[in-house]
Design a protein around this nucleic acid. Structure first.
Lengths: 184, 184
DNA sequence: CGGGTTCTTGACCGATCGGTCAAGCAAACG
DNA sequence: CGTTTGCTTGACCGATCGGTCAAGAACCCG
């Protein structure tokens, strides 16, 4: 399954044939269809495991941290480290979102993961540490920053995950502006 | 070509056959291969046109605005409106980035578009309106917010582009935090 | 009208795909 | 030992794919 993941990630789902997978791990085709009902099921399985692994990493990374702002920061850093370490899976996520068959699974997974982050954002708002606003919007904005920076700087340019994580955290917390601002 | 775009966007590239395309517009297969060397070329053509269209819209949206901060804001709003109106193309972009054959074209297009935004960010930093930081990082962070919010709220939940644009602008400019902050 | 060029057709091609299955194999069981 | 069960094989299947091409149709020019 690791092998299949690697092929899917580098070539794409459709260009990777079942024949190629089984030949790559040196088994017959029958053994594939003994363990999986179809190529599609294998892919969904990989997807599910990847989502669970990411979520597990996030949970573990945040651990017992009580401060919601720190939780968000740790979440960003953990996610970034994970995406750094498992860049192959990033491609899979992105592809899965584009094909109608896999999009529902992706959406569900994404919503679950987002729900976690939403909680922390809500906590932050309640404590007055985070500005008012739709928590889901804020959450997705943070996710967007994280994903984009991961893709461009880690994936495409090969920069270090930790450095990119710093940038992501800085942007999410401070925004773009320079001047100190007064507010009521 | 509009028809092909629609099929690619809703079914995916590979699941859409050339036969389906030509039959859908009621012509023979020959006419397809008269105008395009291959299915791949058609897709690249669609991609290129879409990128150009988006860039054109952005240019036009920003127009003559002198204030770099306003330029960025207008850029976000224009992009959001465009992604709202052409959501089909969004999928194509996302898919193209996942397949090795198309990734280079996507990267090039993405870099060109980003280069524009980087200019405005740099201007903003020079003017002291935007905090210090790698302009490319800030640019990509803004792009990430825009894309993610577009995908989730416009694409998946069908919200209005203008409202989502407001959120994106607010997040990018103000960040996440609530309290006014002192800085030198 | 004839001859040339530009398009258009759809039957056809070889390749390859996801998936099946009769057959075989090794270990466990009685 | 024979038999059953869990696993493995790879030849094989029908379907479908991207792409070709001989055969026109439509149009223009002289």
């Amino acid at each position: 399954m690791d092998f299949a993941t690697e092929r899917f990630a580098t070539q794409g789902y459709h260009p990777t044939s079942v024949a190629e997978i089984v030949q790559g791990i040196g088994v017959g085709k029958g053994v594939f269809y003994w363990y999986f009902a179809s190529k599609e099921e294998l892919f969904l399985e990989i997807l599910k495991e990847a989502q669970q692994a990411l979520r597990r990493a996030q949970r573990q990374g945040i651990a017992e941290e009580p401060d919601p702002l720190r939780r968000i920061e740790l979440g960003i850093r953990t996610t970034m480290a994970w995406l750094d370490e498992h860049r192959r899976l990033f491609n899979l996520f992105q592809f899965a979102a584009t094909e109608e068959r896999f999009a529902p699974a992706m959406r569900r997974g994404g919503e679950v993961a987002a729900a976690d982050a939403v909680r922390h954002i809500k906590d932050g708002i309640v404590e007055g540490r985070i500005r008012e606003g739709d928590p889901e919007v804020l959450t997705n904005a943070v996710l967007g920053v994280t994903n984009q920076l991961a893709r461009v700087f880690i994936h495409e340019r090969g920069e270090k995950g930790a450095k990119v994580a710093d940038d992501a955290v800085a942007f999410c917390l401070e925004g773009l502006l320079a001047a100190p601002r007064e507010r009521t």
